[in-house]
């Protein structure tokens, strides 16, 4: 499947990554190479083959509804300088 610069632009927007014109061209080319490579399995017949999401056949892994201590305040904010009133500050939301 042919991937275009437009596809790359749209995808980059969804991923919230800005690309320069040069990067757009480069990524489009690289993605083409990978898609060409991946193309081989598009023709592989997988009709009625179930997908493997989890490798181990585990199910119903659940925990009891018991509270455990939350993080203390210092730990919550130790990796940011953008704290205000015990909350994380973010710029204007559009």
């Amino acid at each position: 499947m042919a991937v275009t610069i437009k596809d790359v632009e749209k995808t980059a927007f969804l991923a919230r990554i800005d690309l320069s014109e040069e990067e757009k061209n480069k990524f489009t080319e690289e993605i083409k190479i990978i898609l060409d490579h991946v193309e081989n399995f598009v023709d592989l017949n997988t009709e009625n083959i179930p997908p493997t999401i989890n490798i181990l056949p585990l199910y119903n892994v659940m925990r009891d509804d018991i509270t455990r201590p939350s993080l203390d305040k210092n730990a919550v904010f130790q990796n940011t300088s953008h704290e205000e009133d015990g909350m994380f500050k973010v710029p204007k939301i559009l």
Binding site: T11, A12, L14, F41, V42, T46, I49, P50, T52, I53
Partner: peptide, 22 residues
């Protein structure tokens, strides 16, 4: 992001999970 985007997810991602089964 491209592999998971609408229109591509079945072509690529689902196919990959099935291939994984094989």
């Amino acid at each position: 992001t491209y592999f998971l985007s609408s229109g591509q997810i079945d072509v690529y991602y689902k196919k990959a999970l099935q291939t994984r089964t094989l």
